[in-house]
Design a binder for these strands. Structure first.
Lengths: 244, 244
DNA sequence: CGCGGATCATTTGTCAGACATTTAACCGGA
DNA sequence: TCCGGTTAAATGTCTGACAAATGATCCGCG
């Protein structure tokens, strides 16, 4: 546990860092109440606004929650997966949309991780997962579905597949991929894609999952990866042509 | 893109949310300068400290950076993988250490994701990756290595394996697993583990990677998973006995 | 005319104090 | 005993001010 010794010129950043370290190292335990803002200001020899800025930084990371009123204050937050999902998705989306990650790289990462869920999902998927997937298959078959709705159904379908693995840590990790990357990939490919192709592959995945046939699910996913990759490249080529 | 319509009683949280939405939706582009704090305070009809709290929230997520002086201000940050690593690791660590994630679940998730990197790593690993792994293998063979150093070498070894896949998006996702979960798992098992066993499996992984033998790497990883799982359960049983 | 240094304006960082709002706990009366 | 008002503590917000950093500007000198 090294301390962050990197000249943090900012007082509020430094204070936030110290409290964060205390939480991570376990010196502050879950649901423990931090000293009041006034006390913290005294302890750190800074003003209350500075302390507040530090606390807001921690609140933005869901490390603490605050409560008003008597016996209120800042409490160490028990971090839940749901809290972390939002941040995960935001970060993944931004990384993809403004970093120099190519479509190919994102596609490869997404399907590699999705395939990692397959063996567990085939073993553990229950009726509820299959039902969720069936509902989305039906939605995707409706011809008057908007592109946006088709995309969100796509997300829900893959989400169900991932959740079928029955491992919350895996679901958390995949949240960034499925709900961050997948929508962006859809935004790129939706002009060129064939819903029929995608539906058919989704159908294969579903059927194989029903049969608990791990290899077939993996193959269908790989097929979907190849198709998505082809679409992405096609769109990018078209763009380059237009910009000539 | 729905707006967050969930009664965020907090002014600074609401303002941070609005700016965040603007960044994610692309209305604010990378390196664009936000209005000064005073202007933002006017626009949102709040005071400057409130605006500052909102900006600190965004800074905590690396969405903006600030600069002092004339022509300074808050700028939309180009999110880099390195910036996101830290948060990813913090979050993974906390999720594991204070949430109700069992050792088994964490172990399963970690190895599932690590195996997902294997096909790519066997295809793309270069001399530098192998060299990094060889160095760590040598370190791990030193009998006078402290437990802490052995653990950090373990992390570096698996890190090299993951990076061998040559996919930054995958490396980013795995950072949370390898640098967050692995150390915690080591903290649990280090009392019971046999370095010889681990070294041997690491050796198998390395050799198979040299031969570009994907299946053997996967098998060795699965073997390591079984061993780790056994250790974890053993430690937990021992704990329960002691607490009787 | 060119250039270097002093000055200035702008912007974030920090502080002090005040008031508003929320909430739990306390206390007194029916 | 229970109910309701009062009170105190804590966060949320505002005002105003000064410090510090930093780029731009201007002036004087060679």
């Amino acid at each position: 546990m090294k301390k962050s010794s990197t000249i943090p010129a900012d007082l509020s950043a430094r204070i936030a860092g110290e409290i964060r370290d205390a939480i991570i190292s376990g010196r502050l335990i879950v649901d423990e109440r931090l000293p009041s803002e006034a006390e913290l200001a005294n302890q750190f020899k800074v003003s209350r606004p500075t302390v507040r800025e530090a606390l807001k930084r921690l609140a933005a990371q869901s490390l603490i929650r605050t409560q008003r009123g008597a016996s209120g204050g800042a409490f160490v937050n028990r971090l839940r997966f749901e809290d972390a999902y939002g941040q995960m998705i935001t970060t993944s989306t931004l990384l993809l949309s403004m970093n120099e990650v190519s479509f190919d790289v994102a596609c490869e990462a997404r399907f590699a991780m999705e395939r990692a869920c397959v063996p567990l999902a085939t073993a553990r998927r229950d009726a509820a997962h299959l039902e969720r997937m069936r509902i989305e298959l039906d939605r995707q078959a409706q011809p008057d579905l908007t592109d946006e709705d088709f995309c969100s159904s796509d997300v829900a379908f893959h989400r169900a597949l991932v959740d079928g693995a029955g491992n919350p840590a895996l679901s958390y990790q995949l949240a960034g991929v499925v709900e961050g990357m997948l929508p962006l990939m859809n935004m790129i490919t939706f002009t060129a894609r064939s819903r029929e192709n995608i539906q058919q592959l989704h159908g294969e995945i579903f059927d194989a999952l029903v049969r608990r046939d791990s290899d077939s699910v993996t193959n269908a996913l790989s097929e979907l990866e190849r198709y998505t990759l082809r679409l992405g490249r096609q769109v990018i080529v078209a763009r380059n042509k237009k910009s000539d």
